[in-house]
Each structure stands twice: as structure tokens, then as C-alpha cells.
Amino acid sequence: MMRRLLSAAALIALICVVAGLWLTRAERLPEGAVASLAGDATRGEQVFWAAGCASCHAAPDAEGEARLVLAGGEAFPSEFGTFYAPNVSMHPERGIGSWDAAAFADAVQRGVSPEGAHYYPVFPYASYALAEPQDIADLWAFWQTLPASDAENRPHDVGFPFNIRRGIGLWKRLYVHDDYAVQGPLDSDAERGRYLAEALSHCGECHTPRDALGGLDRARWFAGAPNPSGRGRIPAIDSDDLNWSRREIAQYLADGFTPDFDVAGGHMASVIANLANLPEEDRDAIAAYVQAVSPSK
């Protein structure tokens, strides 16, 4: 009897372990999803600026051309510890110069490393998961034209249990969506804006509050959040809280001046440095989308 109980317990434990491993496994993109597409570097540069890659991966305080050197090093404090942006330049050892398109796409859209490990969601792959495969192929084509940096990576400073990356597999099941946060009828400008804002520029990663597990609370989209630096707040920008006109929003995204001619600082200044490189229609589209985000959505 006892022996039978024990073996039943062992079987249950084994099932739990197998289920746990299965639930937390790293899932790549379907084979060929991006790698089969020919990338266009010129278009990729637009994706690069829309997706805000330089904001996190350029060296801290880099300006102008230096923002194309993706040396990493910027610190991202959070409730779970401090993350450091890695070197993702084209350096073959210290950067990602030895990657191929498939590895790049798995990292950007699935948060999976070439070795099959999960990346922390401080890397906004939950947003990029919504991007068009062609945009990722174009982005990789542009990426390969960027310089190499031999800057060394700094390990993340994250304590137990968050240092167990396997657990991120569960997080992904909860928070990586295959649909947009903002549903419902949008005009064609706002639809283009939604693609730019949700899939590429990942505005919600800062402007939407997070729950206890660090996932975005989609029911409070753009409702503002505490600044992870511990000082100040990231403002609410849903249609109840941001009463700027569409033109004012679009112009702010180009030159950084609020309607009162205050000037953005902090991370938003960097976002504007990216978006300033986009065509005016794209900033206008983002503005149309922002105005369509109602708090009760």
C-alpha cells in the first residue's frame, strides 16, 4: 500500500515537473517566419527609429550619430532588480554580429536567445511580437550596417527568484498577446498609429501601469505609472488625461515642446530623438491613435 502511494506521488511529481518544463519552455518563431524574407536596410532604418532600439541600447547619454553605436550599458531599475542593456552592436563576440535573421527575430519577437534562454521582459518583445515579419527582416538588414562596439556586457542585478529565467516562460504565457491592447473601430490613420505605437514604439511599456508580476495592465492602458527610477510619474496619456490636440501631440513627438513649451526630459527626450526621424505622417498617425485611447476601452 505504502509503496503504491509513494509511486503515485512520484508519478504526480514527475507530471508536475514535465508540465512545468513544458509551460516554461522557450518558444521560437515558426521556422522561416522572418528568415525567408529579403530585408531592405533603408526601410529598416525607419523601423529602427520607430521601435526605439537606440533609446535603450545606445550608450547612456549618447547623442547624434553615437546613438547608432549599440554598445549597451544603460541601467533600468525596477522592482525586480536593475537590468543593464546589453551590447547588441554587430561585434561578433560581444555583440550580436554572429547572429542570423532567424536568431534576431526570435530575440526581438519571442524574447528567446540563440541558446534557447528567455530574455527578461525589460526587453519589450511583448510589444515587438505584434510587428510585421517584413519589418523585422528590414530591421535586421539595417542592423547589419551599424558599427561594432567592443563594450563588455554588465550582468543584470536581479535577486532570487527572478534570477531564474525559466520562470519567464510562464510570464510570457500571461503577458505576451497576439492582439492589440486597443480594440474597436479605428480610422486608417489611428490604425497605422496603433501599429506604430503598440508593435514598434512600445509607448505602453512606460505609460501603462503594471501589475504585481510586472505585466502591463491592459485594462488601464495609457493610464500613467510610477517612474521605475523611483522619482516622479510617467503621465497618463489616455484621452481623458491628455487634452492636447492631434497636431500638438504630433508636433511634440517631433520637437519635444509641449503645448506650453515645456520641454521633455528623461526617457521621453530620447523617444522624441527617435520619432523625429520618422515621416510626419507617422507622427500624425501616432497622435491619432493616442487620441483614440479612451480610459474605458
Partner: peptide
């Protein structure tokens, strides 16, 4: 504003 002002933006 980046380094010397509390960020509300």
C-alpha cells in the same frame, strides 16, 4: 530636465 528635474514626462 533630464538630469536635474523630477520627471513627470
Amino acid at each position: 530636465h533630464d538630469d536635474y528635474r523630477v520627471s513627470n514626462d
